[in-house]
């Protein structure tokens, strides 16, 4: 999937994946896509809920070798 920016949040524990995602998102334009890599299992539910509450769209997610990958489109 095409992303405008990739955020490496691997090895970071909650709340850092979301803190960094929020920061990275601020640097994108509406409609652009941020790809996030994380290893904290809690990131899945939290990113989905955060995206929803912030008006963003979680387009896709997958797991690859224990790395959780997310694609979020800025709202």
């Amino acid at each position: 999937m095409e992303a405008n920016k990739i955020l490496d949040a691997k090895g970071l524990a909650c709340p850092m994946p979301i803190v960094k995602t929020k920061k990275a998102m601020n640097e994108l334009e509406s409609g652009q896509v941020l790809e996030i890599h994380a290893t904290d299992k809690g990131a899945k539910n939290d990113l989905a809920a955060w995206a929803k509450s912030g008006g963003h769209e979680l387009i896709s997610h997958e797991v690859e070798n224990d790395v959780l990958k997310f694609w979020i489109k800025k709202g």
Partner: peptide, 10 residues
């Protein structure tokens, strides 16, 4: 109790 997700408080 009061519940608010941490990511609403950043």
């Amino acid at each position: 109790y009061f519940n608010i997700p941490y990511f609403e408080l950043l």
